[in-house]
Design a protein around this nucleic acid. Structure first.
Lengths: 359, 359
DNA sequence: AGCATATCGGAAATCGTTTTCCGCATGAGC
DNA sequence: GCTCATGCGGAAAACGATTTCCGATATGCT
């Protein structure tokens, strides 16, 4: 295999100096058209590609963004990543993906690893809501950063793109209430995890609005782990009057909860109403289909990418620092079950209430 | 924010030359213990981390592996990736992930991008079975490469880790045959896609072994796209005597097929038997649970990582070039349905044939 | 025609590290 | 006590680009 062509080879081929080659290729002013032509021809002929490392060393930039996730083995994250990655790639950036394996204490190490590699920007979606140390680390790195569905640090270089979990969660609760549910349970991820917090707050708020007191015994927070979610769901569902509706805040938790329901012989949509967060294959294909709070994951990824691309361009930071994207409640059969109340004549009234709510 | 410490700062702090610092830190022979101590102390105090780019430029290596996928938004791929990534990371490598968006013509561009970045190794799992151009490109790059569930090129630096799709597929077919099915349909990915080919070959072979002729009308190949899979499944299931059993070779295809079944009002496990490849959440949680061919995705990823780590160590290539990992057939309710046949006396012969086949 | 200015090309410094080469010093052997 | 071998550390080259600085040329104006 032949050795890779360097800028010197191109210079020799085009009969000019190396400096001229660099200027010609990088579109500097004051370069004659003729020279550009010759250099381009030579570069093309030799299949010259500027050495990435030398380039980066000199310019202090790598055209690489670091992407920190808790785990990529989560369809929601991986879908977002795919979209962001495509947008970044067309923007001329490659992306180095690092997983903290859902261990908050690894976040700092991951960030430092990426920083050492001189990434030009960061997208952070580590699962554990980063403790102070990680956020501080982020700030002192001085790298443009987009937080993905996380709280932004106050930092100048820190942007965020988030989903509006709250409004759809309120509608979900209202929907359940309108169907007569009063014992509405909630299982979320870690309590300090941004999406969980948003969802829980909205849940509590909506219950309150409906005149129902959120009951501590009906809300549980678990880790991102199907086993743990399964255990929590079992506990919750085995209460003496079991809850008549369940909201699960996340797709891993959904899997755990479905296992628990299955093991207890409870039929979704008949014995219990179920609402999931994030509309994945499973929610659509499950029998019965599961009501879910959907968000456009592609849009989330692309928006994060664009925000970062803009943030990485020196100066010109006109953009909003925090972008909030909408969510949407998709009603399916899993919440068609009406809570059978002693009183009757509920159907008509409830259908009306829903129609009202949905508009 | 203070400027990052360079090797010169460390040298000055420790009152030695830069060369000595480099040697001390990199554990060269002929370095006195005293010197090492002093240098280490200085490095620690200044929080010195060798600049990645300069290091790479000089050594011609980046401690980075490139990972090429068709899409990461596929739970099977992302699970494999997560495992591989962890293993590589503990081996001291970071990983740059590039997606070809399931477009075969982008493969070469992606590979060249990674090569330009001087990746030390490659793991390739691009969805489209790379046409000759990509494979040739791979060969001329001269980078140690592990193919993930793909055919290895003959190249010296090319390794592969594959799943033994065939044996479980044969068992699956035998299982269906033993329950009286004769019209066993198959929907796979692109026909030139390695796993699809392996699965289809085994399917045809097993049918043949059972005395059933694989019928062209019952086998379809589609792209990695739920819509396309849905369309193919519809066509297949609307045949006049519809197939009594369906094997879907991949999780995207499974989703499409389930949609089609749902739309046609066919109940899995009652109206039709269903076998899926790859045991994902959906197969376990679907009602009824779906019989699936399982493989250890973590193991696949870790094995690929280890193979590559070893391949990247110069020399010492004792390892097998191709590793084949087992798969396993998980029987669930989706194949409990027995095909009621008009004729009898078939059972005995087939059961015998199956017992033979499985061993 | 001569001078000043604008523009372009070439040589060399720079980025931060590794690595080679060489000289010095210390130790041992005769 | 002198020499030789060996181990250790310092100076400088190399990696491959960018970029600054400076000299040279061409052009335009008076």
């Amino acid at each position: 295999m032949t050795q890779k062509a360097t800028i010197h080879d191109v210079a020799q081929q085009a009969q000019v100096s190396v400096g001229s080659v660099s200027r010609a290729l990088n579109n500097y002013p004051h370069v004659s058209e003729d020279l550009k032509q010759r250099v381009r021809a030579a570069a093309l002929e030799l299949d010259y590609q500027p050495a990435f490392l030398a380039n980066g060393l000199r310019r202090g930039e790598t055209n690489t963004v670091g992407f920190l996730v808790g785990t990529i083995a989560n369809p929601v994250i991986s879908t977002i990543f795919e979209a962001a990655s495509e947008a970044l790639s067309t923007g001329g950036y490659a992306v180095t993906l690092v997983s903290s394996r859902n261990q908050a204490e690894l976040d700092v190490a991951c960030l430092r690893l990426l920083a050492r590699r001189q990434v030009s920007g960061l997208i952070v979606s580590s699962a554990a809501e980063s403790p102070q140390r990680a956020r501080a680390c982020l700030a002192e790195l001085g790298i443009p950063t987009v937080m993905l569905d996380r709280e932004a640090t106050g930092d100048d270089l820190c942007y965020a793109v988030q989903s509006d979990h709250a409004s759809s969660m309120r509608r979900a609760v209202a929907h359940l209430v309108s169907r007569g549910h009063e014992e509405i349970a909630f299982i979320g991820g870690p309590a300090d995890f941004y999406p969980t917090r948003q969802r829980f707050l909205a849940y509590a708020e909506a219950l309150d609005f409906a005149g129902l007191r959120p009951r501590r015994a009906l809300t549980r927070f678990t880790s991102f782990n199907e086993r743990a979610a399964y255990a929590e769901a079992l506990l919750l569902l085995q209460r003496d009057p079991p809850p008549s509706a369940l909201i699960v805040a996340g797709n891993i938790i959904l899997a755990g909860a479905l296992m628990a329901l299955q093991d207890l012989g409870l039929l979704v949509g008949r014995d219990i109403a179920l609402v999931a967060c994030d509309d994945i294959h499973l929610t659509r294909l499950y029998r019965p289909p599961i009501t879910a709070i959907r968000r456009d994951l592609q849009l989330l990824g692309v928006t994060a990418a664009h925000l970062l691309l803009q943030g990485m361009q020196a100066g010109a930071d006109q953009a909003e620092r925090v972008i909030k994207l909408p969510t949407e409640l998709i009603l399916r059969e899993s919440t068609q079950v009406a809570r059978i109340k002693p009183a009757s004549a509920h159907r008509g009234r409830k259908a009306g209430a829903i129609a009202e709510l949905v508009n």
